[in-house]
Amino acid sequence: MEEVKSAVEEHMDLMADLVQKLSSELRAGLRPAYDNFIGFFHAIDWKEPWLIGLVGFHIVLLLVTIITRRKTNFQMCLFLLTLAGVYLAERLNTVLRMNSKSFSSQNYFDPNGLFISVLWSGPLLVIAMIILINTLFSLCYLIVRWKRAELRHRASIARNKEE
């Protein structure tokens, strides 16, 4: 019983420390995160052709996602392709790190994969979430249509019985 009591006390102390750290970070505000983002943004040379192409690719993919929102099968293929792109990001980072001198003025591809995560996986995940939300709305609409048809069918059966 004492072991359980000491384990619970240790857990409570750990939770109290975590809450205190979180509250102190929240009191500090979002300024440090904003400063890190601005530093990251300014460290990138946005005029490089391959970066312009990458941003253009993500914009075109987003437009295709929005335009084809009613085509469920195409959207599911697009969803799987975007998730496959995220899955392959680590390998892509390794290949690009080895060959970065051939297409880039600086090597953005660190071993931790921060750059590829932010500029490749991040937009792909946002597009995948848009597809997922669109699919959920479509499913809700189909369920409502199905239920209305079922109620109409029951009402017609009831009318036929009365006659």
Rank of each mutant, 00 (worst) to 15 (best):
I131R: 10
L81W: 06
I143M: 12
P111T: 03
F74A: 10
I143Y: 11
F109I: 04
R31V: 10
L63T: 09
D110P: 02
I133L: 13
M15E: 08
Q106W: 10
L54S: 12
L139F: 12
G53M: 11
S138Q: 15
Y108H: 07
S102Q: 07
K47L: 10
Q20A: 15
E9F: 01
L61F: 09
C77I: 15
I44N: 02
P123G: 09
R97A: 15
N134D: 11
W146I: 03
G113D: 12
F109L: 03
S105A: 08
L30E: 08
M12G: 01
V19S: 06
G85E: 05
L119C: 14
S138W: 09
N160F: 08
R148H: 06
F40P: 04
N93D: 07
S23K: 14
P123W: 12
C140R: 12
I116L: 13
A149S: 12
E48T: 03
L51F: 14
L83H: 07
V86H: 03
Q20H: 14
F115P: 03
A43F: 05
R70S: 14
L61E: 10
L142M: 12
K101L: 11
T72E: 12
L78I: 01
Y108W: 11
I44G: 04
R159N: 06
R27I: 12
R152F: 09
R145T: 03
E48L: 03
S138F: 05
I116W: 06
R154I: 00
N73Q: 13
G29K: 01
V118P: 02
I67F: 12
G56I: 03
R31S: 13
R97S: 15
R97W: 02
D35N: 11
R148L: 10
D35R: 10
L151P: 00
F115H: 02
T68M: 13
L14D: 07
W120T: 00
M76Q: 14
W146L: 13
L136Y: 06
M12P: 00
L63D: 00
F137T: 00
C140E: 07
E48F: 03
S100I: 00
N160T: 01
I59L: 15
P111L: 10
W46Y: 04
G85F: 03
T72M: 02
I116E: 01
